[in-house]
Design a protein around this nucleic acid. Structure first.
Length: 351
DNA sequence: AGCATTTGACCCCA
DNA sequence: TGGGGTCAAATGCT
């Protein structure tokens, strides 16, 4: 853990330093002769740097604090025992849906939306790949929308009981924008992540597949960071990882993969990670203070979609000490929330 | 053959 | 009761 924090600490300092440097660059580019694109790029980079730093900050604090994991069933309970149990083999999905618990659990799944730019250059007819394997299971014309909505679920749903789903809808206003609504987070191990990723991605966008053709599971933390940096560098081109939590990084995924089934203490990390973003109702005043929309690291914009009532349900479901379908809310918000005293100003956060 | 996508039908919930 | 979400058979693709 200590060595882990050492790495985090270095990264944290790195990112903050980088962020400040970028902010200074941006300041220089605020003159009228500089292009908007340059400014936007710098802005993206700055936000990315600080997001990373904040994530690490949250991660660090979560790791250092004992988490109340053992007594919660959390993720392990929902995907594995619900879909992967021996019973489920004899039980049709229809029966599952008829089951009130199941329906309730689905309702409790965290939900958020990314706004993803389609790549016009490559003729991509959909949002960029997000790094996960999805299988389309439906399409529906939506009453108030010009374009139909597509429904996807995790390819590993049946095999690993991963309940993650997403909906993709082309924006009415700007057809080059896709609104991708994610539900639930991935509990699957994307075994040949790089390969499957590449295969699905090649279908969508062959030009981008090389960038992502890596296997996270074998990455060292530093490698992950390097990879992350590489991706961030092509943020406007390569919206690749935005699943699980609104912001997902390779090292997060690696962690999740490593701790499967997710009842080990390490899972508190991912839980916390997600918590930091999935609880806008409580923490957005801190984390989302910049904008109601959160520009993600890869050029998309995501909005948390848990309604207040949903969130209340999520909280009550967990705090009642019973089944928490996906989220680990049993840890204190203190760790997950961004420190209100975080010295943005002293870091030159505002250029 | 095995996997993904399409699409009409069905189910649930507001 | 209608809209949204999902199922599952049919079809397509590799």
């Amino acid at each position: 853990m200590e060595s882990g924090w050492s790495w985090e600490h270095k990264t944290l300092v790195n990112e903050l330093t980088k962020g400040m440097g970028l902010a200074k660059q941006l300041k220089l580019h605020l003159n009228p002769t500089s292009s908007n694109e340059t400014r936007e790029l710098l802005l993206h980079k700055i936000l990315s740097s600080y997001e990373k730093a904040l994530l690490i900050l949250n991660w660090g604090s979560s790791v250092s604090q004992p988490q109340h994991i053992g007594s919660t069933t959390s993720i392990a309970e929902s995907p594995i025992s619900v879909d992967g149990s021996p019973h489920s083999e004899d039980m049709s999905l229809k029966d599952h849906l008829a089951n009130k618990d199941m329906s309730k659990k689905r309702k409790l799944l965290p939900r958020w939306t990314d706004q993803v730019q389609a790549s016009s250059e490559t003729g991509l007819e959909g949002p960029k790949d997000d790094g996960y394997s999805w299988r389309k299971y439906g399409q529906k014309d939506i009453l108030a929308a010009k374009y139909p909505r597509s429904y996807y679920r995790c390819t590993y749903r049946n095999i690993q009981g991963c309940l993650a789903t997403k909906q993709v809808q082309r924006s009415d206003d700007d057809p080059s924008i896709f609104e991708v609504t994610y539900r639930g987070r991935h509990t699957c191990i994307q075994v040949n992540h790089g390969n499957s990723q590449a295969s699905t991605q090649e279908k969508q966008n062959p030009k981008q597949s090389n960038i992502q053709n890596t296997n996270y599971a074998n990455q060292q933390p530093t490698d992950n960071l390097m990879q992350l940096k590489a991706r961030l560098r092509v943020s406007t081109e390569n919206l690749d990882v935005n699943e699980m939590a609104p912001l997902t990084f390779p090292f997060m995924q690696r962690s999740e993969n490593q701790v499967f089934p997710p009842t080990t203490p390490d899972n508190s990390f991912s839980g916390n990670f997600q918590q930091a973003f999935v609880s806008p109702a409580t923490s957005e005043s801190h984390y989302y203070s910049v904008s109601p929309y959160q520009i993600n690291n890869f050029g998309g914009v995501h909005t948390m979609q848990n309604s207040e009532s949903d969130f209340a349900e999520m909280v009550s479901a967990t705090t009642s000490g019973t089944n928490s379908p996906i989220l680990d809310f049993d840890f204190t918000l203190d760790h997950a929330e961004l420190d209100p005293n975080f010295p943005f100003d002293t870091l030159g956060f505002v250029a």
